[in-house]
Design a protein around this nucleic acid. Structure first.
Length: 606
DNA sequence: ATGCACGCCCTTTTT
DNA sequence: GGGCGTGCAT
């Protein structure tokens, strides 16, 4: 691996700024030394982008341009944020913890928590992931008497999310964007969906980006507070910002224009979730005095690989011109493996892995298998198992998306935010306590009729009179368990409180009684969640339940990837972005699958 | 009315 | 390898 790679060697032995400037090439140090005014860094793949960003922050601090607490650095993944923070900590020490560095979602959640009341929320609002959103949509569809099997909740959610990303309100959507009956349904659902989230004191992922804009638009004095606080703003992966992210950062930067964006139009991979490549293409028009610096030297790949990538990217119609080059060796040619089907492919990849290990001495953790979609992993897992090759899966159904984990999390969410309707619906009959569909339906419609929260209905004995008698008692039991555990929050530890919930509800007991392979696994996952909570509690100063919940709702699986375990890594191409492996298999390179095409496969997407 | 077992469905990429 | 809906038993 090259010395400029993401490798683990300590690059920051010296504390003297000049020391590490010496490690940079001309363009890199130019970018690091630029301090005031808008700066656009076009950073090709493997061109040392992270190192430039970290050094730039260190440089701003060293030159006393600002305090750490006045720098805002936004990334897309927790991993990128953590990596940068660690590197900066090496240079400047614990002061690094004062940086406002994190994903868009986590930073703006932080701001929203502080300003919640100004956007009509309570501080401990819940965060709904896409699964929660789908379930809300589904509920709304049912209330509208639309069969969720004919109209898929996901389709509706995509439309709502797409609209939100582009800052189109439910009202505007209904007025302007209805072109099909599906749009029409989406428009109806959109409004109700928003109300329901609001009433549940919950935000979805998109809200975390939109609500700050609302906040700043309606409260100029609050906007100004943050404009003054953030003297320097840095945005990583700018090519992947969507409209909301573009607007909110522009608002924050407009006073000082000390905004530095780093990106590469050729590496835009998130258009499917609203990323708008024109944000980076138009940066120079947004800020007429912007400086542009292109990082074109690649430190990661061989010439052979670079040449191949370049030949493909050159065909993009819209792009910022640049040519990647490298001083690295020519390297092995790329090997093409023709296969009859996926089973043969997997089998031969597994064999190749054994070969490169035996003949060329690579270790398992230096090898990666990349595919387009998670479900492709299965056949490779099988093949690797058969050949006794250890592997680790990154992504797919992540730990925090498992049903049993989500259930326990839902219980915890209810301690913090009892009005979280999605959480109630999730666990009110989990484990089965005799509150079935029929009773639930009654309860929900009571809430709607009285324009109140489900929680309110559950608590109100008068309202419950219409509900099936046996269910009433069970509802009361459910409520009192939650109330009891909520009392504990201040006193007991989080793990103990969680254990109490599990005990009182019999959640784990059901798994023990079932005693099947499956329930055993589920039980283990719940135990692992307890471990995670306990670890969180031990490693944090102010380890509140709501802080834990926030963290788990904003982590992804790549964040937990183990770099040193002796295992081949399996993941999607998306998840691999920014990582390095000496040996890489890109599998399933089939028409329509890679790149993904099909009916709506537009040329721009390809 | 609820609970359970079964068969059906689907699987882009992520915060 | 999931969830989810259906249909049957309790």
């Amino acid at each position: 691996m090259n010395s400029q790679s993401n490798g683990s060697q300590d690059l920051f032995a010296g504390n003297d700024m000049t020391d590490y400037l010496a490690e940079l090439n001309d363009r890199q140090s130019q970018a690091v030394l630029h301090s005031d005014g808008p700066l656009l860094i076009i950073a090709g793949a493997g061109s040392g982008k992270t190192r430039v960003l970290t050094y730039r922050i260190a440089q701003l601090l060293a030159a006393k341009k600002s305090w750490a607490s006045e720098i805002l650095a936004l990334t897309f993944t927790n991993k990128a944020a953590r990596e940068m923070r660690e590197r900066i900590e090496h240079i400047i020490g614990p002061e690094a913890n004062k940086l406002w560095m994190g994903t868009f979602h986590s930073i703006f959640t932080r701001i929203l928590r502080m300003e919640a009341e100004h956007v009509g929320y309570k501080q401990d609002f819940s965060i709904y992931d896409s699964d929660d959103s789908d379930r809300v949509v589904k509920g709304v569809l049912q209330e509208l008497r639309i069969d969720p099997r004919e109209i898929k909740p996901k389709q509706i959610r995509f439309r709502i999310s797409g609209a939100k990303n582009q800052m189109i309100s439910a009202e505007e959507y209904a007025a302007k964007f209805v072109q099909s009956s599906l749009d029409d349904i989406a428009a109806q659902v959109f409004k109700i969906y928003n109300n329901r989230l609001k009433q549940s004191n919950a935000m979805d992922f998109d809200d975390l980006l939109i609500k700050p804009i609302e906040l700043f638009e309606t409260h100029p004095e609050i906007l100004e507070k943050y404009q003054d606080r953030f003297k320097y703003i840095m945005i990583d992966e700018y090519q992947d910002t969507n409209r909301a992210q573009y607007i909110v950062t522009k608002m924050l930067a407009s006073k000082r224009e000390n905004i530095c964006v780093v990106g590469d139009d050729a590496q835009s991979i998130y258009s499917f979730r609203g990323a708008d490549i024109s944000n980076i293409l138009n940066f120079k028009e947004d800020y007429s005095n912007a400086t542009q610096i292109s990082l074109e030297q690649n430190y990661r790949s061989t010439q052979a690989i670079l040449k191949c990538a370049d030949a493909i990217i050159k065909q993009n119609k819209q792009q910022l011109e640049k040519t990647l080059w490298t001083e690295n060796p020519k390297g092995n040619p790329i090997t093409l493996l023709d296969n009859f089907n996926e089973r043969e492919e997997a089998q031969r990849v597994a064999q190749h892995i054994r070969n490169v290990r035996m003949k060329e001495g690579y270790r398992f953790n230096e090898i990666a298998i990349l595919y387009r979609t998670n479900y492709q992993s299965r056949v490779f897992e099988e093949a690797l198992r058969r050949k006794d090759v250890p592997y680790q899966l990154v992504g797919g159904i992540s730990f925090y998306q498992r049903k049993e984990v989500k259930d326990v999390i839902a219980y915890l969410r209810l301690l913090v935010n009892p009005t979280d309707e999605e959480a109630i619906l999730r666990v009110i009959n989990e484990p089965a306590r005799g509150v079935g569909q029929k009773s639930l339906q009654t309860l929900v419609s009571l809430a709607r009729q009285n324009d109140t929260t489900l929680w309110e209905v559950l608590q109100n004995p008068v309202m419950l009179t219409d509900v099936y008698k046996p269910a009433q008692a069970r509802v009361r039991e459910f409520i009192s368990i939650l109330d009891e555990c909520r009392q504990e929050l201040g006193g007991k530890s989080l793990v103990d409180t969680t254990r109490d919930i599990l005990d009182k509800t019999g959640y784990v007991k059901q798994f023990i009684e079932e005693n099947s392979q499956e329930s055993l696994g589920r039980r283990e996952n719940v135990m692992e969640l307890l471990n995670a909570i306990s670890y969180f509690e031990r490693s944090r100063e102010n380890a509140s339940l709501s802080a834990f919940l926030q963290e788990v709702s904003l982590v992804s699986d790549v964040d937990n990837m183990e770099k040193d375990t002796p295992a081949v890594t399996l993941m999607t191409v998306h998840a691999s972005k920014g990582l390095e492996f000496p040996v890489v298999f890109v599998v399933g390179m089939e028409e329509e699958l890679f790149p993904m095409g099909g009916r709506n496969g537009e040329e721009a997407d390809i």
